[in-house]
Simulated scan of single mutants.
Amino acid sequence: MRGFGFLIVAVGFIVMIAATTMDVSVPSGLGRVNNLGLMADRQNYTLIGGVILIAGLLMVIFGRRTQAAPESTFDTRPCPLCAENIKNAAVKCKHCGGDVGKASPQAVPSLRFGWVARVICAGEEERVKVSDAIAEAGFPVVEMLKVGGVGAGAFESKSEAEKAADAIEQRLGYPTTVMFRDKISGDYS
């Protein structure tokens, strides 16, 4: 939005400069005289350029800067004492002040069946590496038996799994797909 605002500011500035340098005189038998129609056009173009310039400045000032990554719900957990959301790495609750201890990745609650962000691995070494990376990122780890991979989840909704898949792809760099984990497929222990 801000980049577009800079473009609009430039266009408004150019229109205003062109309008102020516009010749409003016409030749006549007595020399050159000002034309009221051209003077009105110059005034209109100056006003239009000014409005465009102001609109661009407002876009630059109030436009969103680069979006900060929203605080992920996967990086938080409920406090065992007051049930308010706290960071997984927190050892003391910011709400009640109680000592809560650092959460391990396995302490993050997970469903037995649901949506999973899946990473397919080539071998056992890669599977262990990906599993550790997913756990360090704060996601519950799910082993995928048939496909030889690892997943983050399971999540209640597909959108939660898609957020986890996006986070794994962006933060960890692993290609990820989203699938539903069920008890029928045999992919899970």
Rank of each mutant, 00 (worst) to 15 (best):
I86T: 10
A90H: 05
V33N: 03
C79G: 04
A103F: 08
G63C: 08
E160H: 09
S189G: 14
T21G: 11
A164C: 05
D182C: 12
S131P: 00
D166E: 15
G37W: 03
F180D: 02
S189N: 13
I120L: 13
A161D: 11
F13P: 01
A122W: 01
G153A: 11
V142Y: 10
S25N: 12
G56D: 07
G101C: 13
S25C: 00
D99N: 05
D75I: 04
F4Y: 09
P70A: 13
P140R: 05
I168R: 01
G114E: 02
A122C: 00
T76V: 04
F62K: 05
E156G: 14
G29M: 06
E71P: 07
C96M: 08
P140D: 10
L57E: 00
P78L: 03
S185A: 14
L111P: 04
G5I: 09
L7K: 06
G50F: 12
E84L: 01
D166A: 15
W115C: 07
F4K: 12
C121I: 04
K92M: 07
E162K: 12
A103D: 04
L172Q: 10
G63R: 02
R32K: 12
K87D: 14
I48E: 07
Y188N: 11
G12C: 04
R64P: 03
E125F: 09
F155V: 02
E136Y: 09
M144N: 15
I120V: 14
A117D: 01
A90M: 05
M16H: 11
T20L: 13
